[in-house]
Amino acid sequence: MRIELTEMMWFEQHAVSLAELAELTSLSAATLEELVSCGAIAPIDADDPQPRFGAAALSAARHAHRLSEDFDLDSQALPLVLGLLERIDGLELQLRELRARLPGPIR
């Protein structure tokens, strides 16, 4: 029997607290604070005394957990690697968008 999935939400519509972020990503609050302080992840509103984090931060934090497990990265290397991967993702997205705008071969 197939279970119908009803409670689905777009990942981009997320917002979680730092504690929820730690729970969802299995990263410690200290590691997350380190990632925030070096800009690898950013709260939705930097001035909010109770910062909340959107989908981009949740995605980056989950990614950070996986990278630190797979490559044994320390707290210095992790933000650097995350930043570079984010840059690659951004460039690949730009490339796909530009390719979409270019005409295809003549048929």
Binding site: R2, I3, E4, L5, M8, M9, W10, F11, E12, H14, A55, S59, L93, R96
Partner: peptide
């Protein structure tokens, strides 16, 4: 069984 709502774009994620 999952209903993918209209409006999905490449690379988006449903949680």
């Amino acid at each position: 069984k999952a209903r993918i709502p209209k409006g999905a774009s490449d690379g988006q994620r449903l949680r």
